[in-house]
Amino acid sequence: MRDTVELLEAIGRDANLRRASPEVLARALEATHASPGLLELVAKGNSTALTTELGIGERFGEHHSQTGAHEDEASLLN
């Protein structure tokens, strides 16, 4: 079975695959022995199996405070 992260990086920098249809992508992934989770995500848009395979969890994405929230109100309004 092909390493999922390595495969995703390869797809990300491949001009033919980055915008390929789901059908073309699915065939390419099957040919490279992609993991069942990655195949399911491409075929059905379901990431549950891939999440389990990679042991990934929820991430928090905010890296900025809300301007004007309690901790920087003073610096803004003075």
Binding site: T4, G12, L54, I56, F60, H63
Partner: peptide, 28 residues
Amino acid sequence: TLGSHLTPIARNYIETADVVFAALSDHV
């Protein structure tokens, strides 16, 4: 987007660093 957007210079900073701190929104 994974694999598509990392610039060559950013990649080099990452690969040659002693320590890399990561604040990424996607675990993959």
